[in-house]
Design a protein around this nucleic acid. Structure first.
Lengths: 149, 149
DNA sequence: ATGGCTGCAAAAGCTTTGCAATACT
DNA sequence: AGTATTGCAAAGCTTTTGCAGCCAT
């Protein structure tokens, strides 16, 4: 079993939540697809292959639970549904997204874009910033080649 | 009549769209509330006070139209609906958002945070970036005072 | 036994669509 | 006349909720 999986399951237990087979399966699947940004529906379709009895509501409830424990982060790419990513992916606030307006692919991008800026903002606006999120919209390499070729 | 209003109406006409009373009312209202981030429902409630016959579908269709003409930009603050802002507010890519996690207020914020970065990203990832958007999550001044006071 | 969790189905939002009626050019 | 546009209602989607039954402690 992966170390990340064990850590998440321990965290669930520490917070007094039960480790049901459904929750375990959902967390495992999320880790299997850690590079993607799955929607609830995506995840449901995948876990249903392994446990046909699972219900969509359970998937939603588990995603909410994991988000409330900060295991997952909800992200919205404007395609009509919420998508989720492992919070581990954005440690240090250096995780951002490149969104291709042609094919819709979302690519993670890790770089300290705004280090030190949060304090400047607090001084100027009175907002105490906890987190930030940058989305870049453009055209990915492949779509550009397809358009030119 | 405001200059901004005239410019938008001209733009509509230039693109071969009709200037119906409903569209005119919606654009006027959007300009009146240019500081806010209205949802379709918000806007519907406001314009309905001036024209009780207007339909919600017309509001949605007009918002889509204005967004497709780049007059408006759709933004999502994770509250379950799309909100809109005048694109004029984010000329130069220097318009960002501060979102208070306590009271939900959204404050615009204009500063060149990422100038010059888009080329760096293109060199490193192959993405040609057209636009970007930064959201800062934190606690606003008032909520902090309320918590401390 | 108690309380958490599940699956189903229904309901709730937000948004889109089909269509007949209407208004504009 | 011809076509874009409207308003209504219905449908579509994602997400949430109520509830009876189930499972773990």
């Amino acid at each position: 079993m992966g170390e990340g999986l064990q850590r998440i399951l321990d965290h669930l237990r520490d917070c007094q939540y039960r480790l049901t087979p459904q929750r375990r399966l959902i967390v495992e699947t999320l880790l299997d697809y850690s590079q993607d940004h799955l929607s609830a529906e995506d995840l449901y379709r995948i876990v249903k292959r392994r446990d046909p009895a699972i219900g969509l509501a359970t998937v939603y409830r588990t995603l909410d639970l994991l988000a409330s424990l900060a295991v997952l982060t909800k992200v919205n790419f404007g395609d009509g549904c919420s998508r989720f990513e492992l919070s581990a992916a954005k440690r240090y606030h250096h995780h951002h997204h490149l969104i291709c307006e042609a094919c819709g692919v979302v690519q993670g991008f890790d770089e300290d874009l705004l280090g030190g800026l949060e304090r400047t903002i607090e001084r100027r606006t009175g907002f105490r910033v906890h987190d930030h999120e940058v989305k870049f919209y453009g055209i990915c390499h492949q779509c550009r080649q397809a358009a030119e070729g």
